Amino acid sequence: MSEADQLARRFEEDRPRLRAVAQRMLGSGAEAEDAVQDTWLRLSRADSASIDNLPGWLTTTVGRVCLDRLRTRSARPEQPWDSPGPEPDPTGDGPVDPEREALLAESVGRALLVVLDTLAPTERFVFVLHDMFAVSFEEIATVVDRTPTAVRQIASRARRRVHQDGTVREADPARQRRVVEAFLAASREGRFDDLVSLLDPHVVMRADAVAATLWPAVETRGSAAIAGFFNGRAQAAVPAYVDGLPGAVVALGGGVRIAISFIVTDRIIGIEVVADPAQLATLLFAD
């Protein structure tokens, strides 16, 4: 298999996730497919050998394509909620992949799209990539030309707007909280297999510079590695909402010393650990 064929195969493996990103960003199945195809064109012209993390590159690239499209929308109003669901792949020669279509149908709700449509393009971009696909604030910052701290604040503002109406949530907040509490309990009790089952296989855990002195690395990937780190830990972690996300805090001396937030869809897809006092001061905590 040629290098070009291998690249095309890897892109097709990521196509369902890229289309889900674009669907959430643009609210239209047809536009989402166009954005995914545009992403493929950009990949085919890029130096693929210099791309260390292809899935991450593709996610931020399709997000950038969608952000550009959102910013240039003018005359025609978008009606993303007028379609009963995602459109079939017009480029496919065979039958529609039921698993892919099920993924898209589950991931894009009409009510959520209505609320997302009220966000400014940058807010929507940050919220979708971070809160739904666990892209780091550092990666997002390079796209929107802001600092990671500014991007975190944009995400917090967008999250509050999306969650303002308690009936509009992509996932049941009570269920998200239960997943996190189950994870913390399994961590404290050393139940490795349960930890793995609650984590997405491709979960990413990121720690800031201060937390990285206690954590295994600034970034850790994979359910087995992250479950191994948490196995038998979290003894002092107390469940809490961290800037609107289900999570946990470790408090010492009357103040929060470590904050852990979890991005939960079906399972945990992202974990962020903050221990920098300056960063902690910008976060909002709730029981």
Rank of each mutant, 00 (worst) to 15 (best):
S44H: 14
R45F: 14
W40V: 06
G63W: 08
S50L: 13
D47W: 00
G29M: 03
A32G: 14
R69A: 08
D34K: 12
A46I: 00
C66L: 07
W40T: 04
L54W: 05
T59G: 07
Q23A: 12
L26S: 11
V62Q: 07
A35I: 05
G27I: 06
W40S: 09
V62P: 15
D52W: 04
I51A: 02
T60H: 01
A46R: 02
R45Q: 15
R69F: 04
R69I: 08
G29S: 13
C66G: 15
P55M: 00
L70G: 07
E33G: 11
D52T: 15
D34A: 13
M25D: 07
R42G: 03
T61I: 05
A49M: 05
W57L: 01
A49P: 00
A49Q: 12
T72K: 13
E31W: 12
A32E: 02
D38N: 10
R69Y: 02
Q37N: 05
W40I: 05
T39V: 04
Q23C: 03
M25T: 04
S28K: 06
G63N: 01
I51V: 11
L26P: 07
W40Y: 09
T39M: 05
T59D: 12
G27S: 06
A35N: 13
T72N: 11
G63R: 13
T72V: 06
N53F: 14
R24A: 07
L54Y: 04
A46D: 13
L26Y: 06
I51W: 00
R42I: 04
S48R: 10
R42V: 02
D52E: 14
R24S: 09
T72P: 03
D68P: 03
R64S: 14
R45Y: 15
N53T: 09
G29V: 04
T72H: 10
D34Y: 08
A49F: 01
R69S: 10
Q23N: 07
R24N: 11
L70P: 02
D68M: 11
R24E: 05
V65M: 14
V62H: 13
A49K: 15
G29N: 00
T39D: 02
T61Q: 14
D38G: 06
P55S: 00
L26V: 10
R42H: 08
S50R: 13
A32D: 12
L43A: 01
G29K: 01
D47H: 03
L70Y: 09
L70R: 10
L67V: 06
D34R: 15
L54P: 09
L58K: 09
A35H: 10
G27P: 06
S28R: 10
R64D: 10
L43F: 04
V62D: 12
S50D: 06
R71D: 08
G56T: 02
L67C: 05
L41M: 08
S48L: 05
R45T: 15
A32P: 10
L41Y: 03
T39R: 03
S50A: 11
G27F: 07
L54D: 04
R45M: 15
G63Y: 11
G63K: 12
N53Q: 08
M25V: 07
E31C: 05
W57T: 01
W57A: 01
T60V: 14
L58N: 11
W40D: 08
R64E: 15
R24D: 01
D47S: 11
A49I: 00
Q37K: 03
T72E: 14
S28H: 09
